[in-house]
Amino acid sequence: MSEFNLLWLQSGGCGGCSMSVLNAEAPDFYRSLSRNGINLLWHPSFSEASGREFLDLIQRIEDGEIRLDALCLEGSVMMGPRGSGRFHLLAGSRRPMFDVIRALAGQARFTVAIGSCAAFGGITMAGPNPGEAIGLQYEGKQAGGLLGSEWRSAGDLPVINIAGCPTHPNWVIDTLVQLAAGELGQRQLDSNHRPRSYTDHLVHHGCPRNEYYEFKASAEKPSDQGCMMEHLGCLGTQARADCNTRLWNGSGSCLRGGYACINCTAPEFEEPGHCFTETPKIAGIPIGLPTDMPKAWFVALASLAKAATPKRLRVNASTDRIRISPGQHDERDD
């Protein structure tokens, strides 16, 4: 069987998704590809070829001399200023990067957005979107982007959005290996064209603060141990990703690191409309409750749970260490 040729380009991003895939373990990123018959034609950080050698390579792909199975783009597509693409002209070519991307997507069997910037525009779309950043097939929540909402690759799939800021190394590896094996179809993608392998889960799943969540025992300030939903902006109950069951850098996740989930796999996460680390409330009740739960039920259950909160959880929630351990007598005060 011939190898699955993969080309990785970067545009309006930070390179963080490439750094993240290098965190892959057992096996590492290079071996994950080679063992599964994936040939990395070129990557901006990992390949030998530079300058003219690279420009020759993309010319040969555009001319159909080299087969391209997957085009991966990391970073958003920079359209500015005023649609000219001058905010990112490919070095050595004076050609707008969006033009290179569009041409190569036309040749590739599959096109893959690595991270939320390439997928939806991501962090670079924040504020006034000074770069006129867009995603490959989305502009925020709006379908369209560079390639248009109806666009399908030669392999008859839309752009596959491995969203995340950064993306997880194994979200990338699992998806690429499935693609190379012919095991990834439309049914494996969610409504935002993200792989369901990780978006069928919530960040909330496996959160070590779940007991605090159950009893609405909340953290009040950074480094507290309680649930961060009520005060500190945590969106883990809505965010679609398996961060707390798959884990990052060995044993980590945002919540395990003591800070809020900012829902970075979702389009438009970059503009929450309030401070990221402060929960907006109406009449003391957080807006943005779990998506598939009737609000009245949530409020009723929350007030019931709050009334039943063991002292252990209430005390521990707003401090940075265990003050009362489970074995201790934990009758409620008063």
Binding site: M19, C165, P166, W248, G252, G257, Y259, A260, I262
Partner: peptide
């Protein structure tokens, strides 16, 4: 993973 939740992009 222990000290910062993840790398890159920690809060």
């Amino acid at each position: 993973g222990i000290l910062a939740g993840k790398w890159p992009h920690s809060l």
